[in-house]
């Protein structure tokens, strides 16, 4: 098991490096001049040339590449072009807020999707309704759902703040958006697994032993559904930690996603690179954690590894 984990760790490192290199090269393909973005009203070519020189943008690509990745090896993500602050200092506090949103979002999708899935598996009439809800949720774009929730619960009903920012009240709507977008996938998996379990011989054994339905569902059936759900939740957590751009922008949630969005618009390359690298690390790390969780939940997976 430890060896399998080591192997995955190495693959993860390779994946993160690959993503970083690709992102770095892509930034030079994207048209646009960071110097102009920094000083949009500067008329003189000399001013712009001066800015470029300060940011070492006039050096060949190879030199810039070597210098960026050399610094990266020492844990230095560089300085923001626009905000004149270390990228790490910009990302740090936002990582906590994005983490909170990611966790709340995953919790919401597991709860909503899990409940829908169990209901669909147990009641034929609910299944059709859940299927329809799933279809609708799958078809709605994230930002539309976010805006609708904001309109209804924020403006119409006044139940949630609309001003943006991070806080316990502000987290509800973006988390609900993430939860509703992700719920159909969980509902599908949970419904399939619960249904399969309910028709299984081991549930028949449990019924034969005189156990109650609720007990069988909780202790026997859901225990079997746990491992695929944990795997999915871990992967979602990783990808949400890399910044849920749309949701953060719609709800002005000051996380990594909003930071990345603004940095992209300003051509603030070091910040874009920083968010990409942090995101890639998060995805890899949480995939690993998801594997570990699956092994804890399923004794058979422990031995396969």
């Amino acid at each position: 098991m430890a060896r399998a984990m080591m192997r995955r760790l190495v693959f993860g490192l390779i994946a993160v490096t690959g993503v970083a290199v690709l992102a770095f090269l892509l930034e030079f393909v994207v048209p646009g001049d960071p110097a102009r973005a920094i000083a949009p009203r500067a008329q003189s070519a000399a001013v712009l040339a001066n800015i470029r020189a300060q940011l070492h943008l006039n050096q060949p690509l190879v030199v810039q590449f070597a210098s960026y990745f050399g610094n990266l090896l020492h844990g230095d993500l560089g300085m923001s072009y626009v905000q004149r602050q270390p990228v790490a200092a910009l990302i740090g506090p936002r990582l906590a807020d994005t983490g909170a949103l990611a966790l709340a979002g995953v919790l919401a999708e597991v709860l909503i999707g899990g409940t829908l899935g169990v209901l669909a598996a147990r009641h034929d009439r609910v299944r059709a309704a859940v299927g329809a809800v799933n279809l609708v949720l799958l078809a709605v774009p994230v930002f539309v759902l976010g805006l609708v929730l904001l309109l209804v619960f924020g403006y119409q009903l006044g139940l949630a703040p609309v001003a943006g920012g991070a806080g316990p009240a502000q987290i509800v709507l973006p988390a609900l958006t993430l939860g509703l977008i992700g719920a159909p996938w969980y509902a599908q998996i949970v419904a399939d697994q619960v249904q399969e379990a309910l028709a299984s011989n081991w549930v028949r054994t449990a019924v034969g032993k005189g156990l109650r339905d609720g007990y069988i569902l909780r202790r026997h059936v859901l225990r079997n559904v746990l491992s695929p759900v944990l795997t999915m939740a871990g992967m979602d957590l990783g990808s949400y930690l890399s910044g849920v751009v749309t949701v953060e922008v719609v709800f002005v949630w000051p996380g990594i996603g909003l930071l990345a969005y603004n940095a992209l618009q300003n051509l603030d390359r070091p910040v874009v690179m920083g968010t990409v690298i942090v995101g890639a690390v998060a995805v890899v790390a949480f995939n690993l954690l998801a594997d570990l969780a699956r092994m804890l939940a399923d004794p058979r997976a422990r031995e396969e590894a």
Binding site: N201, W202, R204, G208, H220, N224, L226, D298, P299, R300
Partner: peptide
Amino acid sequence: GCVAQDAMAALNPVL
């Protein structure tokens, strides 16, 4: 009490 043909299938795999 019931003894099933396929004990592997009749026991919960994760308990």
